[in-house]
């Protein structure tokens, strides 16, 4: 299951809407081994394409170096599909190389600007991709990671 806070979820969807009709992509980094997507890092789609995305190779190096320095890993790797469903394509599967990451797919094929509908809809789904095998997982959107630590009453000593 992917547990993600509301602000990060909204930021991913917002990035996908902004870049439509091109695919948007990025990472949410988190402390190694924590499985907590904490640091939203939108990336430039160097392919600037409605059917393909790729991180620029220089950006990729800087991203991984920075995560390494901070003892982080890519907890979420997201990108959008702009005309098809939010499900990994064959190309997505062949490139997927982070077995610990949640691969988030967002589809903007029915978002407001495209359809002109007031009640638009952006699909948001999450997958594990390991050795070419795709497994969909539940997405749990929490208001904040700190929620569990916010007591309703505070005892002062």
């Amino acid at each position: 299951m992917l547990r993600i806070d509301r602000a990060t979820y909204d930021a991913i969807v917002g990035h996908a809407r902004d870049d439509h009709p091109d695919e948007a992509c990025g990472v949410v980094a988190g402390p190694e081994g924590s499985d907590r997507p904490e640091r939203f890092l939108p990336m430039l789609n160097a392919a600037r394409s409605p059917t393909f995305y790729e991180f620029d190779s220089g950006d990729l190096l800087r991203l991984y170096r920075e995560m390494d320095d901070r003892d982080e890993e890519p907890v979420v790797i997201y990108h959008s599909h702009t005309a098809t469903e939010a499900y990994p394509s064959r190309t997505d599967i062949s490139y997927a190389s982070e077995p610990n990451a949640h691969y988030v797919l967002v589809s903007t094929r029915e978002h407001g600007e495209r359809t002109g509908l007031a009640g638009d809809d952006v699909e948001f789904r999450s997958f594990r991709i390991v050795d070419g095998e795709v497994t969909e997982e539940e997405v749990d959107v929490v208001e904040s990671y700190l929620f569990g630590h916010s007591p309703t009453t505070v005892v002062y000593e």
Partner: peptide, 10 residues
């Protein structure tokens, strides 16, 4: 030398 997986897809 640094080896990194490309992050890309369709």
């Amino acid at each position: 030398v640094t080896i990194l997986p490309a992050v890309a897809g369709g």
